[in-house]
Design a protein around this nucleic acid. Structure first.
Lengths: 300, 300
DNA sequence: CCTACCCCCAAGCCATACTTATGGCATGGA
DNA sequence: TCCATGCCATAAGTATGGCTTGGGGGTAGG
């Protein structure tokens, strides 16, 4: 095709060969092959070169259109490679989606303004499911200490820092004391508790068992604003991740570090080959850049 | 390209291989090569097959458009090969253009209604020039006996019958006698003559010289209607080809065969390779079919 | 746990395609 | 008229690329 266009452009087979950096017989053979499968001559051989036949002119029109399309295709792909275009779909758990991810998206937009980044909030199990279904490219998830990390088989799991858990109390609570002093869980053994998401509640139960008591969990929600509202009213105490508090801190609650409670670990998950996709790779980099500066590295 | 479309269509490399009649690694290698020059993965390999990436979807759109264009190109070319489309440009001298060629065009239109046949009138030298310039595909020409046939080198010349010359006289002329009885030129040695085109006049002169006299040529035109009008008025006698009389016979003139005057020979000329062009070949056939039935075969 | 499916990798063989070399043909100038 | 120049076609050789076979890893489904 390209050969035929060059023949038409230069008006001779030898000229096309020069233009393509080939020898004259090579071009001649290609033309012959093309004419063979066309079933009709495409050019008339004249002493001073060649002249297109009607069929040749018809083919040339199509060849030009095809060349234009090929050029458009390569331009599109190149734009994606050069990160001037492309889409990345993210699934993140809410508290990360409200803190780390927006920061990463800003960073990414700064680095590559042409990228189209789309975020949807999803708890870890749902995020993994969406990743499996091909609905998102990256999943930002977490696991609490002692829980099995997500990602079955072909998913790549990248640790992305840790998120410490904080005890959240009513300001009026006897243990509401100095904010930066760690508080032993057992001080709240007789309080009313509010749990978080399913896995968070399970972790809370397990942690308290380790501390020697069974918490009286009467409320439950994965909404950290609701949780703090209840706590602010003195209706419960809770164990909230720092990210949730970063996202929305109710000024009416007291926060203290929890003694002997290990942080949750954040992960970014993706399909193994997805890292080769330029837009996905750059998004992953941006996320890891943000998490590296905003959360402590995982300890194990 | 086609391979990638098949992969996208079947959703797996192995499926594409089955569809193409190839083995799976062959398709895999092609895809790898395509991804290499694209610079980004085009599909994600999943356990149950593959899934197109964003770049893959973009490429697929272009590939579909290109495939459509390729299909259109092959359809166009096939239409030309099957004579459902195509153009033939003819140059013919006027008297043939008024008689044989219209008949041939009708025959051709009957055989291949889709063809676009275009005719322009041109005396033999001009017709050859137009053929050389690529302005027409076929030239219908003639030469009188003793003249050198046209066609220099790379042109193919096909004899297409002969066209006898007739003496044309006023009905009142003493020699106007029985129409089918040949008349000796010398009977008109003392008449006033009208010549035709340049080559026809030269032939007239030469023929009369051979007969032993020099004709008194006072008028000249290649318009055979005008010629007959002059003759009808008794202003001259002339030597006209039968085709010219077939085209327009003035009822006021007498026509007799000319004794010892050899007919002119008709030729169809074309570029050697032009015969491979379906539309041109079929037009040539039609013309030869007509001339074969309407004019005697050339004798030499 | 095993089978089936899909994909990748490595090695070998064959075909395609480009090259060099040669000849024919037409044009233009000495 | 002869030679020189360009163009194209053909033929033969070589090498690159591409397809095949054989083997392995991994994941779903029975």
């Amino acid at each position: 095709m390209l050969i035929f266009r060059e023949i038409a452009r230069t008006g001779s087979i030898a000229g096309a060969a020069r233009g393509l950096g080939w020898t004259q017989p090579a071009v001649s053979q290609h033309l012959r092959h093309l004419e063979r499968q066309a079933g009709t001559p495409l050019v008339l051989r004249r002493p001073r070169g060649v002249q297109l036949t009607e069929a040749g002119r018809a083919l040339l029109r199509h060849a030009d259109a095809i060349a234009t399309r090929v050029q458009a295709a390569t331009a599109d792909l190149e734009a994606m490679v050069q990160l001037r275009a492309g889409t990345v779909r993210l699934a993140a758990f809410p508290s990360a989606g409200a803190t780390l991810i927006p920061a990463a998206m800003s960073l990414l937009a700064e680095r590559h303004p042409g990228l189209d980044v789309r975020l949807r909030a999803a708890e870890p199990p749902q995020a993994v499911a969406q990743l499996d279904a091909g609905e998102v490219d990256l999943a930002i998830t977490f696991t609490h200490a002692g829980q099995t990390p997500p990602g079955t088989g072909e998913l790549t799991r990248i640790p992305a820092g840790q998120d410490p858990l904080r005890l959240v109390l009513p300001r009026t609570h006897p243990s509401a004391g100095p904010p930066d002093t760690p508080l032993d869980l057992r001080a709240l053994a007789d309080d009313t508790w509010i749990g978080g998401c399913e896995r968070c509640t399970a972790h809370l139960l397990q942690t308290c068992e380790l501390a020697g008591f069974t918490p009286d969990i009467r409320h439950g929600t994965d909404d950290y604003v609701l949780t703090q509202a209840l706590i602010a009213r003195g209706l419960a105490v809770g164990l909230l991740p720092q990210l949730a508090l970063d996202a929305a801190r109710d000024p009416r609650v007291a926060v203290r570090p929890a003694l002997d409670v290990r942080p949750r670990t954040l992960y970014v998950l993706h399909h193994r080959e997805a890292e080769q996709i330029p837009a996905v790779r750059s998004a992953l980099r941006a996320i890891l850049d943000i998490t590296a500066t905003h959360t402590p590295a995982p300890t194990g």
